[in-house]
Design a binder for these strands. Structure first.
Length: 596
RNA sequence: GGGGGUGUAGUUGAGUUGGUUACAACGCCGCCCUGUCACGGCGGAGGCCGAGGGUUCGAGUCCCUUCACUCCCGCCA
């Protein structure tokens, strides 16, 4: 007898009443009544109830041996459940299988944790037994969403003349950026490949090659510390196009997102997304990826406190710092002293030396830790600048501009979440444009590329770069796509003009020779007829996270690693044998204990 | 590298100001049960309280160290 199924466990309905079928799946639950035995048979498609009657003694005997998660074959007849026995919770709830043959194909040890969801199981157990964790409904659903997203994207890009081209995983270590994972070469002693942090140089060279619309669902690797939304290996929807500018690029991705959200979530998002200048984002939200699902804008207060004698404000202003406020309406009663203490701690993580808060009372007075330094005049001007009044709260940070923005921008999200201001059903897309091209690092005394050194300046600012004047004011032709405060994609137009590229290296303090040395093959490639081009990379994992409504990247990956970068299931990274090391011409130099 | 959280049967949790034999639910094992779908009933097994050290007459509980998982800062052009 062939052990094959005729149907899946999510398939049968009253329409198949009377048919003889064979089902195979996992025993999700057994309900043994001594006489009749019920088994819920599960596969990824659903659950079907099996009924084993004692009138089939062999089947009945076998059914009594079934335990949770045994793999079972059953053969029998579909029949409508007796009156009133329908289970509305199951798509197959109208029917059951009256079986004449039961066969245990595979036994299972008792599981280390239940398959049903409900109680959260500890992360380390889930990761160690990931193949069992993956049986659970949430991960089954999330991986399906991930697959569907990839399908919709591939479909859409194919319709728009994009070619999917694979690029190497064993590639060259490139300076700058994140740390590389490296792979030793046996054939070339003492040399190493690096795993790509992204296919950036490769996709640009594909433009040189004339593949004017390229995409790839690309695996990327970065040897940096992990976060809830960061794994050492992750996937990008990597895209590059020739003969375009932003006005060609944006609509393509707006259309792609529209299709993804329609098909996966049946949500209609706008035809075109709002755009915001980087400067405006920083001014109003303190971050370059604002969550625009709620208001709560920051207010600059430097002018208000210009003549203040309060030391915190005075020293911040004297050292060229930034004083900003986060006005929160009608919140005075909602924050306890403990909340405020938590917030002070919270902003401390961003390097803020302190957090001031003021509660505006009905009698016109203001309370808070440093309220006594405010004279009535200050209070009037504060109210005027922030629009606050009785019952409102104002958080203030006075620090270096970067710290003030970081801390207050993050506090904004925390406060909004706490006050329930965030409409979680919304999907707010936002293009952020007008990023600075270069940033001066005082400690090194040199300029750095904010994005990467092949990012084009915006056309209006090209002259400035070529003449090397006013570098800090140059805007990049770079753009991020932000969804609900998460950066889901980033990209830019690239430099294709040799003069501009040389100017860029000059600005970074690099001669053409040094640049050639550093970026060699890539620079050379760009000299053989490079079309104007630009592109984007979508964080595939983050996009799927948002589609699934989860905050953890592990929930949308089949086999993720722990925060220390370990795979608890296979127990890697692991040591390799001395023979393997010798073959790779590698000797380890480390404390004996660590090598054990 | 730094800061926070968590760690008690297989699992998820409770465990008072330090005080007899560490508790519950689910799971597991056995027996009973012919219409359940969170099946039900009776009985049972199961613990170095993450690990190590300390304080104490006495530690799951207090202190120190350490490990694991996790969240955040740094880092991620």
């Amino acid at each position: 007898m062939r052990r094959v199924r005729t149907h899946t466990c999510g398939q049968l309905t009253a329409k198949e009443d009377g048919q003889t079928v064979t089902l195979m799946g996992w025993a999700h639950k057994r309900r043994d009544h001594g006489g009749v035995v019920f088994v819920d048979l599960r596969d990824r498609y659903g659950l079907t109830q099996i009924v084993v009657d004692p009138s089939f003694p062999d089947a009945h005997k076998e059914a009594e041996k079934i335990r949770n998660e045994y793999v079972v074959l059953v053969h029998g007849k579909v029949r409508k459940r007796p009156g009133g026995m329908t289970n509305a919770k199951l798509s197959t709830g109208e029917i059951e299988i009256n079986v004449d043959h039961v066969e245990i194909l595979s036994e299972s040890k008792p599981l280390p944790f239940p398959i049903e969801e409900g109680n959260e199981v500890s992360e380390s157990l889930r990761l160690k037994y990931r193949y069992l964790d993956l049986r659970r409904p949430n991960l089954q659903r999330n991986l399906r969403v991930r697959h569907q997203t990839a399908q919709v994207v591939r479909n859409y890009l194919d319709r728009h003349q994009f070619l999917e081209i694979e690029t190497p995983i064993l590639y060259k270590s490139t300076p700058e950026g994140a740390r590389d994972f490296v792979v030793p070469s046996r054939v070339n002693p003492g040399t190493f490949y690096a795993l790509p942090q992204s296919p950036q140089t490769l996709k640009q060279l594909l433009m040189v090659a004339g593949f004017d619309r390229y995409y790839q669902l690309a695996r990327c690797f970065r040897d940096e510390d992990l976060r809830a939304d960061r794994q050492p290996e992750f996937s990008q929807i990597d895209i590059e196009m020739s003969f375009v500018d932003e006005e060609v690029i944006f609509p393509i991705f707006e259309g792609m997102m529209k299709e993804v959200f329609k098909q996966i979530l049946n949500v209609d998002i706008p035809e075109h997304f709002q755009r915001m200048d980087y400067d405006v984002a920083m001014r109003d939200y303190g971050v370059d990826k604002p969550d625009t699902r709620f208001e709560l804008k920051l207010v600059e207060l430097n002018k208000i406190f210009e003549g203040s004698e309060f030391n915190v404000f005075k020293s911040a202003l004297q050292s060229g710092g930034l004083i900003k406020g986060l006005p929160v309406k009608a919140a005075a009663e909602k924050f306890s002293r403990k909340d405020m203490d938590d917030y002070v701690k919270f902003v401390g993580a961003y390097g803020a030396k302190g957090l001031l808060w003021y509660k505006f009372a009905a009698d016109g007075t203001v309370s808070g830790p440093a309220a006594k330094f405010l004279n009535p005049d200050d209070i009037a001007r504060l109210k005027n600048a922030t629009g606050l009044d009785a019952g409102d709260v104002l958080f203030v940070i006075a620090d270096q501009a970067r710290v003030t923005n970081d801390a207050l921008g993050s506090l904004r999200l925390k406060v909004a979440d706490r006050l329930g201001l965030i409409d979680k059903t919304k999907f707010n897309f936002l293009w952020v444009t007008g990023f600075p091209l270069l940033q001066f690092e005082p400690s090194d005394g040199r300029w750095y590329a904010c994005h990467h050194p092949f990012t084009s300046p915006s056309p209006d600012d090209t002259e400035k770069l070529v003449s090397g004047k006013d570098l800090g004011s140059i805007r990049a032709a770079a753009y991020d796509l932000v969804l609900n405060g998460t950066e889901v994609a980033g990209g830019s137009l690239r430099i294709y003009n040799q003069k501009v590229q040389s100017a860029m290296f000059r600005a970074l303090g690099m001669s053409d020779e040094e640049a050639k040395d550093k970026f060699g093959f890539f620079i050379e490639g760009l000299q053989y007829g490079t079309p104007p081009h630009g592109g984007m990379a979508f964080g595939m994992d983050r996009l799927v996270m948002l589609l699934c409504g989860t905050d953890a990247i592990r929930e949308v990956m089949a086999f993720p690693k722990t925060q220390r970068g370990q795979d608890l299931m296979s127990e890697c990274p692991s040591h390799i044998s001395p023979e393997q090391l010798a073959e790779l011409h590698i000797s380890l130099r480390m404390p004996k204990k660590a090598a054990e």
